[in-house]
Design a protein around this nucleic acid. Sequence first.
DNA 1: ACTGAAATTATGCCTTTTCATGAAATAACA
DNA 2: TGTTATTTCATGAAAAGGCATAATTTCAGT
Lengths: 175, 175
Amino acid sequence: MRDATAPRPGPAETEPAETGPAEPGPAESGAPERFVDGYLLYLLARASSIASAEFHTRVKERGVPIPVWRILAVLKGTAGVTVGELAARCLANQPTITKTVDRMQAQGLVVRMTDAGDRRRVFVRLTPAGESLVDELIGDARKHQAMLEQAMGVAESRVLVDALQRLIASTGSDC
Amino acid sequence: MRDATAPRPGPAETEPAETGPAEPGPAESGAPERFVDGYLLYLLARASSIASAEFHTRVKERGVPIPVWRILAVLKGTAGVTVGELAARCLANQPTITKTVDRMQAQGLVVRMTDAGDRRRVFVRLTPAGESLVDELIGDARKHQAMLEQAMGVAESRVLVDALQRLIASTGSDC
DNA sequence: ACTGAAATTATGCCTTTTCATGAAATAACA
DNA sequence: TGTTATTTCATGAAAAGGCATAATTTCAGT
């Protein structure tokens, strides 16, 4: 497979340009300083992804998709959040939230309640089943966070939280 | 719509449980300290999402999907990266990278080159068209990063980068 | 009150991602 | 040298997400 007749977009050159080193590196100088290595947004995305990986794996092992976990976590401690606010707080688009809430409602984790004062708005609220599920997950999350803080140092972790909050504040984001 | 006959998963209670305040809040005490407010992983994801939002919007306006931008950025300054490494560095799954590379190859942004030394491995490499596109995008990214650093303070930004690198290092991640 | 604009959520279509698996090449080992 | 594992990438079916838009409801101005 993956020969010239494969259904790949292009003719897929089957010969490496340079047949020298098996691992083509960026020239000869020691540290070529690739762009991404110093790019703040990439560092942020990478840190977030790596730090979350372990915990997310455990959440998924319980059969809970990450978007569902996010919604549950945001709903915890509230008496209901509108679809639009959920979208903002879950870092997702509104139609995505609508569809995820559909699934969660079908599983009995949340209920929808139209606002009596403004019938355009729909509150999403945890059911008792949703409460107990999110309570378990939050327990795991706290344990995981404690491990993470210990691994990177408690003081450092506080510095990080502080810097992140400052970054968020400096963007003037409302979410 | 959204009445009892709507195709929503459940019967969708059309009456709010409490018809009192239009905005049901978490009890009466001032700051109920919701879980997510102090959760490090949520803070990380939020910071990453918010900080990237502006720039990502501009990238998409150029017709470049974010996964494509990520691949281009990782490839910049290299003589080729394998599919597996791309997946790790782009924080994506391997099949996703394969298919995104398919599209990029069809657009002439990258080429595939099988490794002569180990014919399982496939290097992905920028074409001249890919180079010039990524150069433009990196220019924009640098400008955006400069703005971001100025908005949050250059010193603070350095503190943040340092803390993020320490976090990544403490997880012992190889990517 | 009426009309047009704005806000809020749902829907439909299409693209993309994900999960599991297949295919090919190399490595390990008897 | 065979034979079985392991590695690496591609593929296919199903699920999820994204974008544009529709359907309601409320608001503003007249």
